[in-house]
Design a binder for these strands. Structure first.
Length: 646
RNA sequence: GCUGGUGUAGCUCAGUGGUAGAGCAGCGGUUUCGUAAACCGCAGGUCGUCGGUUCAAGUCCGACCACCAGCUCCA
């Protein structure tokens, strides 16, 4: 028998018979591994365990812990769900059912029938029943024509449309039980591996993602090899909901969204404003150190500004309707740049003055579709921590590096580690979408990439994600529910200076065109706050906490001493309150714990006698008694250092 | 904007055709208390809005509004 050489991840090489399968290889290693194996990665491609391996290959057995294993598992689960659906609702038409980050979905067309929660339970039950049969997933390869015949006979227009794109290729089908699907695979060995099933939700989704197409019903689900893992997953989902900034924002009185003002128009309550202003002041200080100049501009501007900038035709649909005043049209400003350009252009600029960095916390207004609004994270009115930096070409790379360094400082100070950086470049196949000359784009993308390298950014490249006027660096973070959002951004712009005819006089006495960087470390104060609330689960570090300490007298016989302590903390600049309510100490402690106040200062007879205070820290409990000065100095130091863990 | 779900007191929620409820929060009292909820009382709602069916609607029907999830979009 002919042999092939299999290389394992640890570098060992073993010989097997030609045509051996992943399952046989797993079995040859250990029984336990064979039992756990879900799929096999052959030369970087994920295959079914039952597929014969014909040539030398590097190979990895995939288990649940491997992404490839999970994806096969969930992909197979989607097929199991489809089988259950077809069994209960014959005639259902299936489109696509892929695995996703946390489970799987299937988009289906059930004609007039709309799925309800009861339907989901029924499907789930049937899935359990079918999984219990423990039947194998079997691959079958067909000629394209035969595949078309099959789905014509079955009457599945979506599958036929998918087949159109695969014309002439060999088509793979997968069978399990009574269900057959067009599928590239791979799949797990058998349905019996799926032990825990939860169908989570049903929602509309357009066929092939286009709003011009028919809306199908999408069922989201998740499955696991054990019940325990499902329970843990469901618990994590509940935890995430507890962190939801909309819920915490209401509980902690940070902000208010009310239809009486309008969708996506948040009102900042006093406590939320403290956090927000503290963040703003932090950035202002850092910008001051770096030579930024603060400016203030109005909330509306002549529509011609946006016609000049080119924003108007590109983004007409996402702006509020212009207002007409004395024959002129004004727009609620959707961005700050045109205003800042006018400040630059207000007088002649010399090459010696550059770079000029104009900064403003500028509130902008964008018309987002109603279905898009989402707490503070997607709003119609938000404040950009904006700056427009005007410079010579030779200064660009250094300025980019400095800006990235500033953003890194901001993210590190707030303890954001789970963020990604995307270099958003244009799509070279779709150049019409973008303004400006070709060589400008090539130069700008090169500069951005070099700056990213120099500052050791961990980045990936997003083709087609650029702004119309230039490429960007986008800082992306995830919210409590795992959705990814763009926060900070740095954009290189050669187009606007041209359109606004911005100039400076060079050493040669000639007029030159400056380059502009648009940048915002927070991105939008609203979105950033929303993500921050979830990041800290409402438990802000001391320097950001709206209320930093609260003084709790045991009885009103200690009120006078409590007053003295309170006044001292207040005078030292600590945000604090005195709780002189007629309540027992346990009640007060519980109350302030739920409000997530970092420190509680308990004072009673003992403390009054010894001239000390008892300190209780949020979530940690009693720290014991200490002198007032000791508490003050350590607290003030932690605030100054912007310490994240209390 | 599209599909589906939800909407009862400041908050969390009960109430499936027959006089709007509870807990917490609030207010008034009693209690003076040592590290996560003392006790008594009071007040608080055009049941999202508008229209319809009915002797009678929080409850059934319709339209609209808002919010939630997803889709599409996102400077």
């Amino acid at each position: 028998m002919e042999k092939i050489k299999i290389t394992f991840p640890d570098g060992t090489i073993k010989e097997f018979d030609k045509g051996t399968t992943g399952r046989q290889i797993a079995e040859s290693i250990s029984k336990g591994l064979a039992k756990e194996a879900l799929a096999v990665e052959v030369n970087g491609e994920v295959w079914d365990l039952s597929r014969a391996i014909a040539n030398d290959a590097s190979l990895k057995i995939l288990k649940w812990a491997d992404d490839g294993g999970k994806y096969a598992f969930w992909h197979s689960s989607a097929h199991l769900m489809a089988e259950a659906i077809e069994n209960i609702y014959p005639g259902t038409k299936f489109s696509i059912g892929p695995p996703i980050e946390n489970g799987f979905y299937y988009d289906i067309d059930m004609g007039d029938h709309t799925l309800t929660g009861d339907d989901l339970s029924k499907i789930e039950e049937t899935m359990y029943k079918f999984a219990g049969r423990d039947v194998p997933y079997q691959r079958e390869e067909k000629q394209w024509e035969d595949a078309v015949v099959y789905f014509k006979k079955k009457g599945d227009p979506y599958k036929l449309e998918l087949l159109e794109d695969l014309k002439g290729q060999t088509i793979s089908f997968y069978h399990q039980g009574n269900f057959t699907d067009l599928c590239y695979g791979p799949h797990i060995p058998s349905t019996g591996r799926i032990k825990a099933i939860k169908l989570l939700s049903v929602a509309g989704a357009y066929w092939r993602g286009s709003e011009k197409n028919k809306m199908l019903q999408r069922i989201y689900g998740v499955t696991f090899p054990t019940k325990q893992e499902l329970d843990e997953h469901l618990y994590r989902l509940e935890e995430a909901k507890r962190r939801d900034h909309r819920k915490l924002g209401q509980e902690l009185e940070l902000f208010l969204l009310t239809p009486k003002v309008g969708g996506g128009l948040p009102l900042w309550l006093p406590k939320g404003t403290i956090v927000r202003e503290t963040l703003e002041n932090f950035l202002r200080e850092e910008q001051k150190k770096r030579g930024y100049l603060s400016v203030v501009t109005p909330h509306i501007g002549n529509i011609n500004l946006y016609k000049t900038s080119g924003h108007y035709p590109y983004y007409k649909d996402s702006q509020f309707t212009p207002v007409k005043v004395e024959e002129e049209e004004y727009l609620l400003k959707p961005m700050n740049c045109p205003h800042h350009f006018q400040i630059y252009a207000a007088k002649p600029r010399s090459y010696r003055d550059l770079p000029i960095r104009l900064a403003e916390f500028g509130t902008v207004y964008r018309y987002e579709q109603s279905g898009e609004l989402n707490g503070l994270i997607r709003v119609r009115s938000f404040t950009v921590d904006d700056s427009h930096m005007f410079m010579r070409q030779d200064q660009l790379k250094q300025e980019l590096c400095d800006v990235i360094e500033l953003i890194q400082l901001v993210f590190n100070t707030l303890g954001f580690s789970d963020f990604k950086t995307r270099l958003s470049f244009r799509d070279p196949k779709n150049k019409d979408k973008y303004g400006g000359e070709d060589e400008m784009w090539v130069q700008a993308e090169k500069d951005i990439k070099e700056a990213a390298e120099l500052t050791k950014l961990n980045y990936y490249i997003g083709i087609g994600e650029a702004a119309f006027y230039g490429p960007k660096i986008d800082f992306m973070v995830r919210d409590a529910l795992g959705r990814t959002w763009q926060l900070g951004t740095v954009q290189v712009d050669y187009v606007m200076p041209e359109r606004f005819n911005l100039e400076y006089v060079g050493a040669d006495g000639q007029k030159h065109r400056p380059v502009v960087i648009h940048r915002a470390p927070f991105g939008s104060m609203e979105r950033f706050m929303g993500v921050l609330i979830e990041h800290f689960a409402g438990e802000f570090p001391l320097w950001l906490a709206p209320l930093q300490a609260v003084v709790l007298p045991i009885t009103d016989q200690h009120l006078e001493y409590a007053q003295e302590v309170f006044q001292q903390l207040k005078a030292a600049g600590i945000r604090c309150e005195l709780d002189d309510r007629n309540e027992k100490i346990g009640y007060k402690i519980r109350d302030w714990e739920t409000k997530k106040v970092p420190y509680m200062i308990v004072v009673g007879e003992k403390e009054k006698e010894a001239n000390t205070i008892s300190v209780r820290q949020h979530k940690k409990g009693d720290l014991g008694s200490m002198s007032r000065d000791a508490f003050l100095s350590s607290t003030l130091e932690a605030i100054k250092q912007k310490t994240i863990t209390l």
